[in-house]
Amino acid sequence: MRSFFQRQGKFRPLTKTDERGMDGATIPEDLWTKCPKCGELLYTRELERNDRVCTKCSYHFRLSARERIDTLVDAGTFEEWDTEIRPTDPLEFTEPKGSYADKLVQTAKKSGENESLITGIGKINGRPIAIVVSEFSFLGASMGSVFGEKLVRAVERAIDLRIPVLTVNASGGARMHEGLFSLMQMAKTIAAFHRLGEHRLPHFSLLVDPCYGGVPASFATVADVMLAEPGALIGFAGQRVIEQVTRQKLPEGFQTAEFLLGHGMIDQIIERGNIRHTLMVLSDHYVGRPANAQTGYPRGLLAEDPVVDEVVENVRVGEEA
């Protein structure tokens, strides 16, 4: 206990009032990041090098959509699609804090994004893939009209290009401010994935923390391969709602990725560091390796992608990688 306090004294995050380091230079506030799970103070730069996975307890920090894309694709290969589509206020929705139209402006300013979904094409070890990532800081990655439209356009393009689709799904639920337009995005997106399937192109869904409501109740849980990050909370109804309605205590580990795996709802729980490799292998299985991509699952790429180094070439089923 004593050593804990000593360490805290030495490493505690610096506040605005004592921003000066020993040499008098300004030290950024975010030099250290505390792990919410194990409490360890992590050197932020090291945490980032580790794709924001705690180096002590493997807690997976939430990523912004753009951080996520950086961890997935070969550097410099991501081309964003449909950035010109912007949300509007079809219901003229008004809540106590003001209009939806105003809220959109404020949220865009705060989050730096125009909507809760980023789509585009990128390469994973040379394999092209359509990538769809939700941005939780934009109104809880709720599924509004723009989310639906961008997602459907991405799927339609993937059909034209004959490439797989990866969706990375965090969501807090419906965009209530868009009423039934929001609900209908469930129909619209699932219709697009139905078409993708008819063209025999695969959809890989990665569920990340937290993923609730209309997204998992539509396209995100009917993917051809269902993956989830460790510890991610995933479900239809939120935990507070369930507690209020049922007045029951929720079982331990309820709605975690591990709970879903145990109940047969997902294929694999996957550590962030292994996602690229897994997607590459999956892509090759379903659509074949492009002629110009590296052959095999090359160790030659490993310098760029140290993660692959740790993955045994032929993992036997039932054994740990």
Partner: peptide, 15 residues
Amino acid sequence: PGISSEERGQATAIA
């Protein structure tokens, strides 16, 4: 919105 519905995959069943 119940515990057992979640255990048996409510979201997946709807989807």
